[in-house]
Simulated scan of single mutants.
Amino acid sequence: MHLIIDGEITNAAMVLLGKSSSEILFDFPPKIMWRLHSSKGELLDSQIFTIPFILAVDAAYKKVRNLTYKYMPSQISLFPTETQQYDTWTLRELINNCIAHQDYELGMRIYIDELEDHLIISNAGKFLPGSIKPVLDPACAPPYYKNPLLDNTMVNFRMIETASSGIRRVYSIQQKKLFPLPDYDLTEYNKVKVKIYGRVLDEKYTQLLFKNPNMDLETVFLLDKVQKHEKISKIDAAKLRKRKLIEGRVPNLYIAASVAESLGQKAEYVKNKGFTEKYYQDLIIKYLTQWKKEKKSDFIRLLKDKLPDSLTAHQKDIKVKYYLQTLRREGKIITQPTPSGKKVEFGF
């Protein structure tokens, strides 16, 4: 296994196979820590695992409460799908990746934080590809490895995937389960965190994956960002829009009408899409016909619940202002100051 070089035992041999009593030979003894948190963030339980890591991986994995989760992936059947919250292979790959790519000179632990509906697995060091998207490319290859001997040995032990394909497979497994894709957090210096979900976030996303089992991973990656209300580029949004998967403007994106109709989400689509400009302008005219004159705040209250749910409160205010200005320019309504002179009233 090439763990002994010139008759000397390597650090890789100690990390994977060394006795726990030998951890004193390290300046910073390698450790894995599992922690269980409540829904309120309180620490409920914890345990530390030491070398040999070839055994610690299974011991740490067994601490995770991998509960059975039920969900409805489609509207075709009334029988729910049952699955474990976390795929065994996925957890094995992510924990072993932390071991292989840990920067052991930083003296930090590998953490497995278990929360109510997700896990956060973290290790010390840098994410060498720089971001997660390139890793999803089948042709991706890291520029170098932090611990090449340890990495090669773990491949030989069948602990991790070769050819840098492990993370891509983790994403594919979540896609097949119809679950949200993992989130990589690289914002902390010298720390890599990955969040793995154990439940459905958005039923529309789940139903869309169920209806399209052969959808390419790049598209699923973008749709996953949409369901999490994360920002995507205008170019990526254009790709999804071209395939009629989304509508709306960046960053307010939502499932397109064609998809919504096939999923029985017509009402949800209308809430996101809204109505025509004429519809809102007619409501303003009808309101003024009844009450003669009102302030802008009155029209905001009138239209707030009728404007698309995909808009923020500020964007809804801007929309109302735009409709009022359009009607004024067309001569259909007029503006006049209030008696105090601080506000403007709209009327005929």
Rank of each mutant, 00 (worst) to 15 (best):
L3S: 14
E8F: 03
A12F: 02
L16M: 09
L17T: 02
S22A: 14
K31A: 14
S38L: 04
Q47A: 14
Q47Y: 15
I48K: 10
V57N: 09
D58Q: 15
K70P: 13
P73G: 13
I76N: 03
I76T: 08
L78H: 15
F79K: 11
Q85Y: 03
Y86S: 12
W89A: 14
R92T: 08
C98Y: 01
E105I: 08
L106T: 14
E116Q: 06
D117C: 06
S122F: 06
S122A: 14
P129N: 03
D137K: 14
Y145R: 15
D151L: 14
M159R: 13
G166R: 13
Q175E: 02
F179M: 13
Y189Q: 14
K193D: 10
F210M: 06
K211G: 00
N214M: 07
K228L: 11
S233W: 03
A237Q: 01
E268L: 06
V270M: 11
K271N: 11
K273Q: 04
T276C: 01
E277M: 09
K278L: 10
Y287N: 09
L288H: 05
Q290I: 10
K293V: 07
I300W: 02
K304E: 07
K306D: 01
L307G: 04
T312I: 08
Q315C: 04
Y322M: 05
Y322A: 07
T326E: 09
T335N: 08
T338F: 06
F346T: 08
F348T: 12
